[in-house]
Amino acid sequence: MTKNVLLTGGTGFIGKYLTKMLIDNGFSVSVLSRSNRNNTDSVTYYKWDLDRNYIDEKAVLNADFVIHLAGEGIVEKRWTAKRKKAILESRTKPIDLIHSVLQKNNKSLNAFVSASAIGIYGAETSDEICTESTPVANDFLGTTCQIWEDAVTKIESLGIKTIKIRTGIVLGRNEGFLKKLLPGFKMGFGTILGSGNQFLPWIHIEDLCAIYLKAIEDEQMKGAYNATVLDNTTNEILSKTLANLFKYSIWLPKVPAFVLKIVLGEMSIAVLTGKRVSSEKIKNEGFKFQFEDLERALSNCIS
């Protein structure tokens, strides 16, 4: 019998790619959406409204697995107090809603898989290689990720296996991180941000979705996993690699950190800092990355 996977954030960049991968691997997919959408042969849409604390319970009751991807973009808008609240609640409220349906109906799942982020290790630049046991950082990103992951323990308390995927920068064709970056590089105006020494832990969209697929298929997986390639990619290396793929060398001066701080405010730390992050744990589970070479990954995304 076909297993059903319920996605939150299923209409976003990662969600759309993951939906296709799940279907290609024999799953049916349900997606929670704020707007009315027509069902297809493989995807069923259900309504939810976080502002009204509403969710169509059938979405949860018909699910064998839940993958939670929903959340406001970290670098979409300046971090005002209101924006910070929205970033946090857009990640925790869906978990609370799903938990309430599961608890109310004594419903179980084969697994609950939640996105998380390597921001849990903090917004600073160092040579430290962070593992899943690295202490949580005491800053906005670290605290947000910790509360996000703590919310998942409500699901775990119901006896359901939970998995948290701590994601780095996601590289995909004309989407995600590259969507805003590529136009300038295509026109020959690519440059380096700040010192350029900040590490940029990255993962190709295909590998990330394959990790989510493994998370629901592998009964042994449990707990937190980093989803990044461990290499020495910095902002400068990525910028120069992109420019090289577009057949030119960077000629513009670096964008000074103080300029980014003026333009972006506190949010600038998300682009001016970065550590390396280990992928050893997920590899020890038998996962093999298809894209571990930055140039090959970027080339795939811009071809």
Rank of each mutant, 00 (worst) to 15 (best):
R37Y: 12
K82A: 11
D139Q: 06
T153W: 04
K77S: 14
S157G: 14
K58W: 02
S116N: 12
P201Y: 05
K154L: 13
E124Q: 05
K179R: 13
V136C: 07
I129R: 10
V136T: 11
N110C: 12
R78L: 14
S33G: 04
C130H: 10
I74D: 06
K16R: 15
W148F: 03
E292S: 05
K107P: 14
N284R: 11
L260C: 02
E128G: 01
E206G: 01
F112V: 04
G274Q: 07
A111Q: 03
A111C: 14
S33P: 14
I95S: 08
Y46G: 12
G73Y: 00
P253I: 07
L88T: 04
T92K: 02
I147L: 15
S126F: 13
G194T: 06
G9D: 10
S268G: 08
L102E: 09
L141K: 09
K20N: 14
E219T: 11
S278W: 09
G142Q: 01
G176Y: 00
G15W: 03
T8W: 06
G194S: 05
A70C: 11
T273E: 11
A257T: 13
T125G: 10
S28D: 03
L298M: 05
W79P: 15
N300G: 00
K82G: 13
F27I: 11
K261F: 01
L97T: 02
A227K: 08
A81G: 00
L6G: 08
R173A: 14
P135E: 02
R34Q: 14
K179L: 05
E132L: 01
I165C: 10
I160M: 04
I262D: 04
C301L: 03
K247W: 02
Q220H: 15
F65D: 03
A70E: 05
I95G: 09
S239L: 03
I192F: 00
T2M: 03
P183Q: 08
K47D: 10
K47Y: 13
T125Q: 11
G15F: 07
T273F: 05
I250R: 10
S157V: 13
S239I: 01
N226A: 07
Y17V: 15
R37A: 10
S42M: 12
S28Q: 04
I155N: 12
I129H: 03
K154M: 06
L182Q: 12
R91K: 08
L272C: 00
G190F: 07
K283N: 11
A210Q: 10
